[in-house]
Design a protein around this nucleic acid. Sequence first.
RNA 1: UGGGUUGAAUAGAUAGUCGCGUCUUGAUCGGAAUUUACCAGUGAGAUGAGGAAAGUCUGGACUCCGUAGGGCAGGAUGCUCGGUAAACCCAAGGAGCGGUGACACUAUGGAAAGUGUAACAGAAAGUAGACUACAACAAUAAGGCGAUUUGUGGAACUAUGUAAACCUCAUCUGGAACAAGGUAAAUAGCGGACAAUGUAGAUGUGCCUGUCUCAUCCCCAGGUAACCGCUUGAGAUGGACGGUAACAUCCAUUCCAGAUGAAUGAUCAUCAUAUACAGAAUCCGGCUUAUUCUUAACUCAAGUC
RNA 2: GCCCCCGUCGUCUAGCCUGGCCAAGGACACCGCCCUUUCACGGCGGCGACACGAGUUCAAAUCUCGUCGGGGGUA
Length: 123
Amino acid sequence: MQDPEKLKKSWEFRRAYQKGNKYWNRYFVIYVLRNHFNRLRLGITVSKKVGKSVQRNRVKRLIRESFRELRTQVEVGYDIVVVGRTPACRLACQETQNALAQLFQKAAIFNGSRQRGGNWNEN
RNA sequence: UGGGUUGAAUAGAUAGUCGCGUCUUGAUCGGAAUUUACCAGUGAGAUGAGGAAAGUCUGGACUCCGUAGGGCAGGAUGCUCGGUAAACCCAAGGAGCGGUGACACUAUGGAAAGUGUAACAGAAAGUAGACUACAACAAUAAGGCGAUUUGUGGAACUAUGUAAACCUCAUCUGGAACAAGGUAAAUAGCGGACAAUGUAGAUGUGCCUGUCUCAUCCCCAGGUAACCGCUUGAGAUGGACGGUAACAUCCAUUCCAGAUGAAUGAUCAUCAUAUACAGAAUCCGGCUUAUUCUUAACUCAAGUC
RNA sequence: GCCCCCGUCGUCUAGCCUGGCCAAGGACACCGCCCUUUCACGGCGGCGACACGAGUUCAAAUCUCGUCGGGGGUA
């Protein structure tokens, strides 16, 4: 994951929280917002409520690794913020990937799901 | 065999594939451009968390501020002697106390410098009545060391606990804490307060004496996270030698994370089945706490010979 | 990263500095009874806490140390 594909600034996160679409399940919350860079950018948030630094780092790594696998299937031009929730620190990698894929499916940002997803969003 | 005490050591290993941080290096296109340098991507190689990285409880180093010098206050430590850069650390010995024992624990000077305080119980509670012998009298319990009456003789200032109560004695002690601090770039100032040689202000830094300045200070507004500090160090490993030990000296070898929205993960195979506590953020010495596996010495109990 | 502060009934607090009278007080809440046709108000009674573990002391909510938890500050 290269530098221009990370979200870093505090205002970038705040913009995603306020203007983005929100989807969640038991393990993660994601905020999805269209951007104008024609790039896919990822931000990760894991709060102190999740656990100590080992747990938090593990969650971040799981998200990063899963996203690496999934990114080829996702359409470019979105900012995505993933928030880890407490149960996520007990997941294995494959489960993380499934959970994230489920959320991306909901958000309808996979390649080829655009038509269907657009309608879904408007509803 | 079971329990206990103390110490030592380990923190999965090997191999493959994909992915990430840093460093070195090669080539090439893109930005930029007279060229180099610079920026971004890319190939190869090297390297990449801990014994506690944690808690932030301590001792220092680096850095800045302050500082002629001194006094007072405040704070810290508290048997003796050594080790160390230093220490609320470590080692050895003494004393006290706990334990059947191995062993462990101790902020371990001073109560005859002074002050305070001693609940409940008890008729009465501490600076005098309390020492001793004999005799007399009706006298016990509670209570924390200590208990009272009378007569005679003797003795002659003896006198509880508490100083992790105030205190006293000895030794030590400036403040901040890498978000310290430095370099470069960018930028915009406006308003207010206050004075005449003893006032005012500063010195963000306990107070005073003192010192310094004679223009500064305060408020509001604006602007910025680029680089350095940043890892070669009281370093690590091995050996020799001195010392009861902590530790010291000498020699040889070696370079072992350096991020900044913050790097270690995924998958598979074998060893045998498999990993607890837990993630560097300026750097070291210690303490405390969390926790996995192995092992040694000693001790207690029971049984067998 | 660095530096501080705070933990007392269900909730908000007093007591801590200066140890004993603390079997820890008060308010609201909760429970029961009385009052009322009933509810509310009012009256009476009850329930209920010193974060945890050591140490000092005859005696600790209070003093000291260590853990645990919570909160704050910091260009």
